[in-house]
């Protein structure tokens, strides 16, 4: 192997590495190699070419690092942004609310007919319902679903009955300060089944509720009253 061949091989290796093609400038020097005539020219050309190729390689590596850093910055921003958005949405979800209005007088005096009501649609899926909660019900009827506001008075397992015009729950007379004065009630005794609740309107004289419909399915409860006017 001549010195010239060795010089060419070394230059090719430095320019191309294991790839088929090196950088623009390394290739440019390499393609001129065959113009050299003497061994000395060839060696000098190869030596300078090696410097050029190594410089170019360093520069490309630095550019790639910079590009990589930029991509990492961007992707980190995306991750942080989505995580923040998810957190904000999670918080918002706790308070997802809609506005409704009470069309009837069945909840008077608590809700007048025409009251505007802010309904929390989410929290009942996490915390469940409590006795005394004002809830929005989407009641299935032959004519389609109707929306109504009622008060939860019996949870699954509660024994509901009426005696002397008072509501009796699990054998105890329920204290109902929200009722209009002189209000009385009459009802059929029952035990609230699982996944259903017993609801009544505060305006016992004018309300259609579980006394007529029977207990209401929990899945038909669409929200809990948060604020009302």
């Amino acid at each position: 192997m001549t010195t010239r061949t060795v010089a060419r091989r070394v230059l090719t290796l430095v320019v191309r590495g294991r790839g088929a093609q090196g950088g623009v400038w390394g290739e440019a020097v390499l393609r001129e190699f065959d113009e050299t005539v003497t061994t000395w020219q060839a060696l000098r050309w190869a030596a300078g070419g090696i410097r050029v190729a190594m410089r170019e390689r360093r520069r490309r590596a630095a550019d790639a690092r910079r590009a990589g850093a930029r991509w990492r910055r961007v992707s980190r921003r995306i991750v942080i942004g989505s995580a923040t958005a998810a957190a904000v949405l999670a918080v918002l979800n706790q308070f997802v609310v809609t506005i409704a209005y009470e069309p009837s007088a069945g909840m008077q005096p608590t809700l007048r007919a025409g009251s505007r009501i802010i309904v929390d649609r989410i929290s009942l899926h996490f915390g469940g319902l409590s006795r005394g909660d004002l809830v929005q019900i989407s009641l299935p009827t032959p004519a389609g679903r109707i929306s109504a506001f009622k008060r939860v008075v019996g949870l699954p397992g509660d024994q509901i009955s009426c005696r002397d015009g008072f509501l009796i729950r699990n054998g105890v007379r329920v204290d109902e300060p929200y009722l209009p004065a002189g209000s009385t009630i009459d009802c059929r005794a029952l035990t609230v089944p699982a996944h259903e609740v017993y609801v009544l309107g505060d305006n016992r004289a004018a309300s259609a509720d579980s006394r007529i419909w029977g207990p209401v399915a929990e899945r038909d409860i669409t929200g809990r009253v948060l604020v009302f006017s």
């Binding site: 001129e32 113009e35 000098r44 050309w45 300078g48 070419g49 410097r51």
Partner: peptide, 20 residues
Amino acid sequence: GYDLSRETALASGTLYPILI
């Protein structure tokens, strides 16, 4: 590049960095 190198008597390691 080679002709420029011969004309200027600059080695490849000097000439090409200037070209770049």
